[in-house]
């Protein structure tokens, strides 16, 4: 150690070659998975976390694929955001995921940051969370001897908190390709147009059949301890014809359904109002 190197922390940095290796190492005390490191390093630098062993999974081939399987798109946890954006499959089948990731961080961040990392970090403002909630994504979690699959909604437990048990890791994000004929919507409110952490975001998928809402999916970020589905508003809309009265009700219900906090980026009141108003905007766009 010498000169001007500032960040020298005593730790082990282990390159993990396979899932088997990972399963052996993951239970060790002080171990933590690292992939792109774009969130982890910031947290380590601020002293929020201080792992002793970093398990680098970025080169495990099994975690690096994007595949179509039985009407689902499966994305390995170590696939970078840039790779997702370059994927024809994602562009065609999951356009909202693409829309959300285009605005995540910057080119340099997307070149390192991974879908798995963005989810495991469990920020209420995670850019990938809203589209994955809308797509009813399932997360495949693996541990020694077993694996399970849970809806992304159940994965987030609070800011920085996930359903991952000790010794368990996120392997794959499995996303059913939605049936055609929907109206999509995504808006991220930030103070600037790039490199912004969302003040609030709203995404939606809506199927209208025969003049009534056949299915409504609404999800919001940065307005609750985790990114959430607005299920009460969805229920309100489902089976109904979109009228000005319904839009007004949906707007109000969505604003009630979120539970934002005031922080240095915006007040709770603003976030609540903006979610309601974005729901209104979306529904107005749908009815044209």
């Amino acid at each position: 150690m010498s000169g001007e190197k500032e960040f020298v922390q005593h730790l082990q940095h282990l390159k993990i070659g396979s899932i088997e290796d990972l399963l052996q190492q993951i239970g060790e005390p002080g171990a933590r998975i690292i992939c792109g490191g774009t969130d982890l390093l910031v947290k380590m630098r601020s002293g929020a976390i201080s792992p002793e062993r970093l398990l680098d999974i970025s080169e495990i081939d099994a975690l690096r694929a994007i595949e179509e399987k039985d009407g689902r798109i499966e994305i390995g946890a170590a696939v970078t955001e840039s790779e997702i954006l370059a994927s024809e499959l994602v562009t065609v089948c999951l356009p909202l995921l693409r829309t959300a990731l285009v605005h995540l961080g910057s080119l340099q961040i997307r070149n390192r940051g991974t879908l798995g990392g963005n989810l495991v970090n469990a920020s209420p403002a995670a850019d990938s969370a809203v589209p994955l909630l809308l797509y009813n994504a399932e997360l495949i979690l693996q541990r020694a001897g077993s694996e399970r699959s849970i809806p992304v909604e159940e994965f987030f437990r609070g800011p920085g908190q996930t359903a991952l048990a000790s010794g368990e890791f996120l392997r794959t994000v499995s996303i059913p390709i939605p049936r055609e004929g929907f109206d999509p919507f995504f808006h991220k409110v930030g103070r600037r147009r790039a490199l912004a952490i969302a003040i609030a975001s709203l995404g939606a998928l809506l199927w209208v059949e025969g003049g009534v809402v056949a299915e409504a999916r609404l999800a919001a970020g940065s307005v609750a301890p985790t990114a959430i589905r607005l299920s009460r508003t969805e229920n309100l809309l489902t089976g109904e014809k979109i009228t000005p009265e319904l839009i007004a009700q949906a707007r109000e219900l969505a604003a009630q359904e979120v539970s934002p906090i005031t922080d240095i980026r915006a007040s709770a009141g603003y976030r609540r109002e903006v979610i309601g108003d974005l729901v209104e905007r979306f529904l107005n766009e749908v009815v044209g």
């Binding site: 600037r192 790039a194 490199l195």
Partner: peptide, 23 residues
């Protein structure tokens, strides 16, 4: 830069936002 008493609450370029090329 929000201030709470004598403490400034933005401590880096993550929270102190200057215009990017997109702005």
């Amino acid at each position: 830069i929000p201030r709470q008493g004598g403490r400034l609450l933005t401590t880096g370029l993550t929270t102190y936002r200057i215009p990017t090329i997109c702005d």
